[in-house]
Design a protein around this nucleic acid. Structure first.
Lengths: 249, 249
DNA sequence: CGAGCGGTTGAGGCATGTCAAGAGTTGTGG
DNA sequence: CCACAACTCTTGACATGCCTCAACCGCTCG
């Protein structure tokens, strides 16, 4: 293993149980790169050449179609993303861009594919990872289809509060513009919704969220463990989560 | 292996490559059961005790929240479903009910979990399966967020036509009520949308679909390989597909 | 300083859901 | 075999959720 490899990588569930020699093999084939903010690092439809690992900064995963775009997830350190495309040797279903200055490790997809054939423990970790990712997206899909925008905003605010340790006050981890896209609404509509939610127990001041009546907000949001976790704390279901899962796709 | 085990099961990608003895072990621990139409065979939130395999009939997977319900997928023979919940030993995220008289094979989840630790080929098949399932749900989520209901209906009709062999005329594989829920709209709205789509190259007569102007319909639907497949032909992305993938979740 | 961007607010319109009623079909039990 | 109930599908009228367009504020950063 390269002496400069970030030790947090080895601690990821995905790599934790594999043989040291195998992990070292993966790392020597990989490299770390620093990207400026706002850079598109993955174009949807391109062949999946690398498994990506966010070491610093944050990355937005988004879908595009017919000139439209929507945010699917935000990935924060230390997490992998687009594992599934690498495994299937298939085109990326989502694009990715940096939201800030971001350090990524890039692991050649072919090495990943070769490795879980060699290392049984790694294969088991991949299974667990993919199952968790799948369940995250299912949760997200359920939220989109079963809740209206107001309810999605309310549950998002509540979930973030819990992830912040249950404190009534915290700051939004992402721009409202991005949050709106993630929640499937326009920025204007999010802005209006946040304002009207003051009648339901939450006050917003800029990026600051203050929950003034948790019971009331909860009654509106109706949090559900089969949508809002915890499974292992969802990833894609949770945009910009400090305590989130370690993988996206 | 039990002499009466359906040979189509062994031919599923999930089981195709594993050792014969191991496959036989799984089968002897399993059993087949026949269910009447409309029976709820899985309640969301229950612990995942069995991997399910549809042998005959069809099964609807659906989500529930706050008295609301939405169809997530329809599973048809021969396919597995709710693999991810079994693997994670976690509660089902979706409920399931039979749409018609349905024969299922039930494989104990604990046996599945034990087996991919014993059989490396099976583990690889599980990886491939989960990666494909993940990508299916991502496609579905993209469709929901990026397309409006009219576009979703148009792409569904077009995709079904291709799956039916590219013929301009075919019959809908599921009830319109169910299709509406799957597409994230009300039955009334689907009915109206289908009517107005006659101006865009498709005529509907009961359950019969006749594509009268494929170019026009395509211009509206803007089919996209990163949403509508093919990856290995999507499952969840495709409700009631005769040529669909073999697994859902 | 001025351009650009994120956020907010208002006006107006379209898309979609809700409620209600009726036609057609299916399934069931007498 | 028929009558009835239950259900799907359709259609209309209406309400509303959400989007679009536009203007404006405040902030950041060249």
């Amino acid at each position: 293993m390269r002496p400069d490899t970030d030790p947090r990588i080895r601690r990821l569930h995905l790599f934790r149980d594999m043989a040291q020699a195998h992990f070292a093999d993966l790392m020597t084939a990989s490299y770390v790169q620093l990207f400026p903010p706002g850079l598109e690092i993955i174009r949807q439809g391109d062949p999946a050449d690398f498994l990506h690992i966010v070491l610093e900064g944050s990355v937005e995963l988004f879908g595009q179609w017919a000139e439209r775009e929507c945010t699917m997830a935000v990935v924060q350190p230390v997490s992998t993303f687009i594992l599934a495309a690498c495994i299937r040797d298939a085109p990326y279903l989502m694009g990715a861009r940096t939201l800030e200055r971001t350090r990524l490790m890039l692991v050649p997809a072919s090495d990943v594919r070769a490795m879980f054939r060699r290392d049984g423990e790694f294969a088991l970790a991949v299974i667990d990872e993919l199952a968790a990712c799948y369940r995250s997206v299912v949760r997200s899909a359920k939220s989109m289809k079963l809740r209206n925008s107001r309810e999605r905003v309310a549950s998002y605010l509540l979930r973030q509060s819990l992830l912040a340790g249950g404190t009534p006050s915290y700051t939004l981890p992402v721009e409202k513009r991005l949050l709106a896209s993630y929640l499937g609404m326009t920025p204007e509509n999010l802005s209006r919704t946040l304002k009207t939610l003051e009648a339901d127990g939450v006050k917003i001041d800029g990026a600051r969220v203050i929950i003034t009546d948790r019971a009331k907000l909860t009654a509106l949001a109706k949090p559900d463990r089969l949508i809002d976790g915890p499974d292992a704390v969802a990833t894609s279901a949770g945009i910009g989560l400090p305590l989130s899962r370690e993988g996206s796709g």
